[in-house]
Design a binder for these strands. Structure first.
Length: 263
DNA sequence: ATGGCCAATATGATTGGA
């Protein structure tokens, strides 16, 4: 079972890339972020034609998340707990059945939080607290579960080419990293870090200043595995070459292989 | 030289991203 996450920065601008990459990487489940469209505008048909079931939680202009799955969705639920009054489409949870039982997958787009001295950062930290609460609840179920998406968190200095450039940024502030540790300390495994300690693994390169050419990147797209998923971790990787395609997203796909068979 | 970009919107300037 191959599960991937990708912030596509507009599904309508990136449909060609997504189709090309799906054929190349052959993931079973894909978590998408920043689809930037309402549900009705999501290009379901071309993705269904490739054999995927589609679940969408979109909104106009900004944010928006989606899930693709070769296997049917048993349940789909949008919105993170404690979302009273939160109209931003950033969270979509689904259950699929496998030969090993149920598999829970979340596609999430954690708030950016910049500038850090504004209510945007307060929203980010509150959102992280809600995610911690959600995870604490779900981990009690002792299921294979993956929290996948654009976390907008640089976990450690090894996850940035130039950590000094990010010290005052909402993605790297001590409070942000502390909340991310509080999340992983619940017992979630960062799949990429479970397979490599390289300090040159990035998932985002800014469009500006030739960042990709200089490999001036950061690792902010993550797959966090519950213990029951981590038990079955076989491999993980980052499809960096996609950033070199024409008119790319500023993020690239990150994937994990689990020793779980679909049904 | 601390910059340079991109996407969506009743669009031609503004907002958000990271």
């Amino acid at each position: 079972m191959r599960i991937a996450t990708w912030n596509v920065n507009s599904i309508r601008q990136r449909l060609d890339h997504l189709q090309t990459w799906l054929k190349e990487r052959q993931p079973d489940i894909v978590c998408l972020q920043e689809i930037k469209c309402i549900d009705e505008a999501f290009p379901r048909e071309p993705l269904e034609a490739l054999g995927y079931n589609v679940a969408v939680h979109g909104q106009k202009t900004f944010n928006g998340v989606a899930l693709l799955s070769k296997y049917p969705f048993d349940e789909v639920a949008p919105g993170l707990i404690g979302h009273d009054g939160d109209v931003q489409a950033r969270f979509l949870e689904a259950l699929v059945s496998t030969k090993a039982g149920v598999l829970r997958v979340v596609s999430l787009y954690l708030p950016n939080g910049n500038p850090a001295n504004t209510d945007k950062y307060t929203y980010k930290i509150n959102w992280m607290d809600r995610l911690i609460q959600f995870s604490r609840e779900r981990l009690k179920l002792e299921e294979p579960m993956l929290l996948c998406g654009d976390f907008n968190v640089i976990p450690t200095p090894a996850d940035a080419r130039r950590p000094e450039a990010w010290v005052n940024d909402a993605l790297f502030l001590p409070k942000t990293r502390e909340k991310f540790r509080a999340l992983t300390n619940l017992g979630l495994t960062d799949a990429i870090r479970a397979v490599s300690d390289s300090d040159e693994l990035y998932s985002f390169w800014d469009y500006q200043a030739g960042a990709f050419q200089k490999n001036d990147g950061i690792r902010i797209d993550h797959l966090l595995l519950s213990p029951q998923a981590a038990d079955r971790l076989a491999d993980a990787g980052i499809d960096k070459h996609v950033r070199g395609w024409e008119k790319p997203s500023d993020h690239v796909p990150v994937w994990v292989d689990l020793a779980i068979e679909g049904r």
